[in-house]
Structure formats: structure tokens, C-alpha cells
Design a protein around this nucleic acid. Structure first.
Length: 550
RNA sequence: GGCUAAUUGGUCAAGCGGUUAAGACGCCGCCCUCUCACGGCGGAAACAGGGGUUCGAUUCCCCUAUUAGCUACCA
């Protein structure tokens, strides 16, 4: 077989050689230990928590040592393409403080485009150049098998309990003569280009995965498809060419790719490329409510997987990042607590500290992190964040909430415990936050979340006395002393010690009295300091609320 | 079915042949306290099962179970 002739027949328009591209995309000049990573999504227009999780890993690996993190779009499957997807990806990652250094979306004339193009559909000339070279070496061949023929083969393989696939004796088109190929080509029969695998089922390859350690897998023996019928490469072929030419040093990808590592291993070797380091990550998991089992988070079933879900509820992006970091590197949490003042990007991220198995997404933990991180912010920072969120998702309420800036800041100071020895940790996410102190804004429509435990007469007596003795200029301690007086006069203990010593002597204690007022004023039994609340809402609103209850 | 990987409390996880098997979240109790939150103290809670190897296995090997992934002209 004259392979050179076959190569020319298959790729008459290819004039470049691999050498051309090798010298065009030269080795990057980077500091020692600097890694080149990439995010390589298909442009489906959907980016989820799992994507963010691995993008963050990529970004940290590249940026901790001054490397490069770029965006490549794997648009080889045309069915999945959605317009505007690239912008969406860039914007979404930016929202979570992850920036690309080069790649798709950057100005085409800039240096940030030096290893492009970054859209695989625009790289077919490159793929064809390498494909032609493979054919010329007898390492790839056209396959004219139809879908039906392939199905039939698979069926017999299944029946005979043999390994399914296109390999060895089943690789019918391997045996085609030049004349047969020419005839098929002349007849315009559609074909795919397949790898002529050199692997042997008895041998195995070993390589070191940066996360999982040493991996042994059988050699690839399948004559996998390199170029699809339309001339577009499959993931495997594109991966080898692109990551080599773009000089990627670390490929971080989902664990589902581990099984095809032998294919990539063979491809890199046949193509004469140096293999990148692989880091196969575990997926984020969740408990399946139907089966009770652990399973991969899925786009279709799990709304909380969508990043929009978190944006809509108003989770602060920084908190999300901190949470993802704790999942990504098990020692991050400890570091973050120890060096609370340091920028989290200073954390010495290490690939081998990454999880080997899939972590369950834990909302409780996320909430805990939100509380902690939000409590470290200033009231102004929280204000700005809430303002932005409300503008995007609650435009009508926003007018009410932010009509009086000073009032909102006072509320935030109250709820954050600004000025206290220790901060409160009440704030979790925007939606929850506004719910928390909605009573400041809903006027007469206020709904009681909690109801009085004492009977109506007692409530009436307490509130009446409270209103009588109330003086808006009283400071916190005078105000509270008056509450104690009310307690005493109605048979409640004003002194907790006395109450605990002999509770049977009293109807209750000051806390019961305070609770009545608290519920009357705020509609809820649990709030921060009541005196401060009253002073933020003003005497008029307080009186109005109590009068309404009375 | 075949191949591969994983398996420490409810969850996230330290651990790398000898430990009273860390820590965090959640839960429970106590303290502080006008409620809540914060904070402090304490508690319940784990090496999937069975065989080896070894003086000694959570740690190494094998088998079983379970879970996940792959088994496309999808990525």
C-alpha cells in the first residue's frame, strides 16, 4: 500500500506540514513551575457548579505560579452550539472572580490569541494536516462502514460476549486495498478516518495521574474515529492536537475521561507529542432523593446545579468560591482560618490535595461559610452587594428597601453586630437576608411569623403598660429597666436569678415580657436587640404596630 | 456483561504499619443571656465485609459488596 498516495488522495488540499505548526506555536516562555491549563467547554450555553468547580482548579493551578489559563471552545458537536455561549462563560466565571489570560473571547490580533484559533471548528486545517501525516505513515485509514454495519458487528460481539468495538479482525476497512478505497472514494461514499491502533490487549500502559496517582490501564486497541464523516475531529483527536499545540501542561478534566486515557496515550505517542500531566477530578455529587443513593449532580434533575440558582437567591460569589475551595483542597479551610487576613488566592493550592472521590454538595456547610464570610465584611460592602442583587432580582422592592440608605446601613450594622465584641452571623444570602428583617419595611401588611405564648389579657396588660411608660429618649439601660418594672408590677420576675431559684413564685420572667413586645413590634420572637430595632424604625412605627395588636 | 476507580461518623475530611482514629458542618446538652445570634464548655457519632502478609493493620495484597465512570461518527 502506498500510504503517501492515499494521504494525497484523502487530503488533496492540505499543503501544510506538522513542522509548520510546530514552529508556529513554539514552547511558551514561562517561569519555572508555571503551568498552562485550560477550560474547554462545549458551547451549550450552560455552565454549572461542576464547571465552576473544575474551572477554579484550573485557574488556581495556573495562576499560583504565574502560568496561563485559557479558554478553548470545543464546538465539534454542532448540535450543541448556542449563540452567545462564549460571553456567558466568560461573564459567569468573572462573576466568581475567575479570569482567563487568553483564548476564546479575546481580541484576535492580540498576544492573548497567539496560540489560536481557540474554536475547534476554526482549526480543521490543523487537524487535517496531522491526520494526513498519520495516513502517510500508515497509522490512519478511511473507514466506509455504515452505521448499520457497525451495529451488526456490535451485536455479534455482544452475543459472543466479546469486547465490543472496531478493532483487530473486526476492523474491516483496515484491510481495504488501494483499489477498493479509490472506488469507494470515486463513488462518493461517506467515510470517517480511523486510527490504525498499534496497541496490544496484553500490554498495559502506566502513567501518573496528578490526583489519583499511578494508574495502570490496558493499551488501547480500538481503531477509534479521528475525523468524523464531516471532517470534524472527535474529542480525542482534537484534545491531542490542541493541548499539544497550545502547550497545555496540565489537563484537568472529569474522571469520566480516565477510561479513555489509553486512547490519548497512544495518540500522543503516535503523533510524537509529549504528554501533558493529567489530573482527573471527581465530580460533585448529591443524594438522590428517589433512591437515597449518592449520584453525580445532573443538569436536568438538579436546579441547584445551575449557577443562576445561586445568583437568584443572592449567594455572594466570594462565599461560593470559598466553599468550592474547601471542597477542592482539603487543607484550605484550616489555612483560611489561620490566615484570615490573607487573600484566598495566596493559598498554596496543590493538585495532589485534591479529592479522589466525589464530594457531596453540602448546603449546610455552604451556609455556614456564607455566615462566616459575610460577617467579616463591612456593612458598606454588604450594602453594595445587596443593592446590586435587589436591582437585578427585586427591582420593585428595591425602591422600598433602599429609599433610606442610612436606615438600611443601621439595620445591617444591627444584624451584623458591627460594634459588638463579636459579630453576629445571621446573614446567609440576599433572599434570606431581606426576609430576616422584612418587618422594617412592610408597614401595616406585616405578618406575624411567631405568635404570643401568653394569653390575650396578659399581652394586653404588658403592651399597655409598655406604651404608657415609653419614652423615646431613654437609653438602652433605662429602657430595659422600665421593662423590668413592668415585669415586677405584673408578677413576672425581673431578676433571672430569683426566677431560677423559685420559678413557681412568678408568672414568668422579663424575657416573657420582652417577648411580647418583640412579637408585637417585629412579628417574630427572635430578633437582635429590641431597643435598637425600635430606634431604627422610629417611635411612630413602633406605636402603630403595638396599637394594631391592641 | 466487560474494563476502571473509589469506599474513615449523617456530610466534608486528616491519617500514609504501632494514634485515646484530628478538625469542620450538622445534631444534642450545659454556660453566658431580655429572645435570637455570637462566644465558651461538653456529648453522641466512623475505618463496608471476609480472608491473607506482618510481632502488629484504617494504612499493604486478594476476594465479596456497594457506589461512580467508561464501553459512540457526544463531549
Amino acid at each position: 500500500m502506498n500510504y503517501n498516495k492515499l494521504a494525497d488522495m484523502l487530503f488533496p488540499n492540505v499543503t501544510n506540514t506538522p513542522e509548520f505548526y510546530e514552529s508556529k506555536f513554539i514552547q511558551r516562555k514561562l517561569p519555572n513551575n508555571a503551568q498552562v491549563t485550560r477550560m474547554a467547554p462545549s458551547p451549550t450555553g450552560f455552565i454549572h457548579l461542576g464547571n465552576l468547580y473544575s474551572a477554579l482548579a484550573d485557574e488556581r493551578i495556573a495562576h499560583k505560579n504565574g502560568g496561563v489559563f485559557y479558554l478553548r471552545i470545543e464546538d465539534t458537536d454542532e448540535k450543541r452550539k448556542v449563540d452567545g455561549a462564549v460571553e456567558l462563560i466568560i461573564d459567569t466565571l468573572r462573576y466568581f472572580d475567575i479570569e482567563f489570560d487568553e483564548g476564546a473571547g479575546f481580541d484576535e490580533n492580540e498576544e492573548t490569541n497567539a496560540y489560536g484559533p481557540y474554536f475547534q471548528r476554526q482549526r480543521v486545517d490543523i487537524y487535517h494536516t496531522y491526520a494526513k501525516n498519520l495516513v502517510a505513515k500508515g497509522l490512519a485509514y478511511p473507514c466506509f462502514c455504515t452505521e448499520e454495519e457497525l451495529d451488526a458487528v456490535r451485536k455479534t460481539q455482544e452475543e459472543q460476549k466479546e469486547l465490543t468495538g472496531y478493532y483487530g479482525k473486526y476492523a474491516a476497512c483496515r484491510e481495504l486495498t488501494m483499489e477498493e478505497i479509490e472506488a469507494n472514494l470515486l463513488a462518493k461514499k461517506p467515510y470517517v478516518l480511523r486510527l490504525c491502533s498499534q496497541g496490544s490487549p496484553e500490554k498495559e500502559i502506566t502513567f501518573v495521574d496528578a490526583i489519583k496517582g499511578e494508574i495502570k490501564l490496558p493499551e488501547n486497541i480500538h481503531d477509534i474515529v479521528l475525523l468524523k464523516r464531516d471532517g470534524i475531529p472527535t474529542y480525542h483527536f482534537a484534545h491531542a492536537i490542541d493541548d499539544h499545540l497550545m502547550r497545555t501542561t496540565v489537563v484537568v478534566r472529569g474522571g469520566e475521561w480516565l477510561a479513555s486515557a489509553p486512547i490519548h496515550y497512544e495518540l500522543f505517542h503516535l503523533l510524537g507529542f509529549k504528554m501533558p500531566k493529567y489530573a482527573h477530578t471527581a465530580h460533585l455529587m448529591k443524594i438522590d432523593e428517589e433512591t437515597g443513593g449518592k449520584r453525580k449532580l445532573s443538569k436536568r434533575k438538579d436546579p441547584e446545579l445551575s449557577l443562576d440558582y445561586y445568583k437568584k437567591d443572592g449567594y455572594h460569589p466570594y462565599c461560593m468560591k470559598v466553599y468550592l475551595m474547601t471542597l477542592l483542597n482539603s487543607n484550605f479551610e484550616e489555612w483560611h482560618e489561620k490566615f484570615a487576613d490573607k487573600d484566598i488566592n495566596e493559598f498554596p493550592f496543590s493538585i495532589d490535595k485534591m479529592n479522589q472521590s466525589g464530594a457531596l454538595f453540602d448546603k449546610d456547610k455552604l451556609h455556614n461559610i456564607c455566615k462566616n464570610e459575610l460577617s467579616k465584611l463591612s456593612e458598606n460592602e454588604v450594602y453594595d452587594f445587596l443593592y446590586q442583587w435587589a436591582s437585578d432580582y427585586e427591582p420593585t422592592n428595591k425602591e422600598i428597601w433602599f429609599a433610606d440608605k442610612e436606615k438600611m446601613l443601621s439595620i445591617l450594622r444591627l444584624y451584623m453586630g458591627v460594634g459588638m465584641k463579636r459579630r453576629r452571623k445571621d446573614l446567609v444570602y440576599a433572599k434570606q437576608i431581606f426576609e430576616l428583617f422584612s418587618y422594617f419595611f412592610d408597614g401595616s401588611k406585616m405578618q406575624e411569623k411567631d405568635s404570643f405564648k401568653l394569653d390575650i389579657d396578659e399581652v394586653h396588660a404588658i403592651l399597655t403598660k409598655y406604651l404608657e411608660s415609653y419614652n423615646h429618649t431613654d437609653d438602652n439601660s433605662i429602657w430595659f429597666n422600665k421593662l423590668k418594672d413592668i415585669a415586677d408590677s405584673l408578677g413576672y420576675a425581673s431578676d433571672m436569678k430569683a426566677y431560677k431559684a423559685s420559678p413557681e413564685k412568678f408568672k414568668g420572667n422579663v424575657s416573657d415580657v420582652a417577648e411580647v413586645i418583640r412579637i408585637a413590634v417585629t412579628g417574630r420572637a427572635n430578633t437582635p436587640d429590641l431597643w435598637t430595632i425600635v430606634h431604627i424604625m422610629g417611635e411612630a412605627q413602633m406605636r402603630e404596630r403595638i396599637e394594631t395588636v391592641l
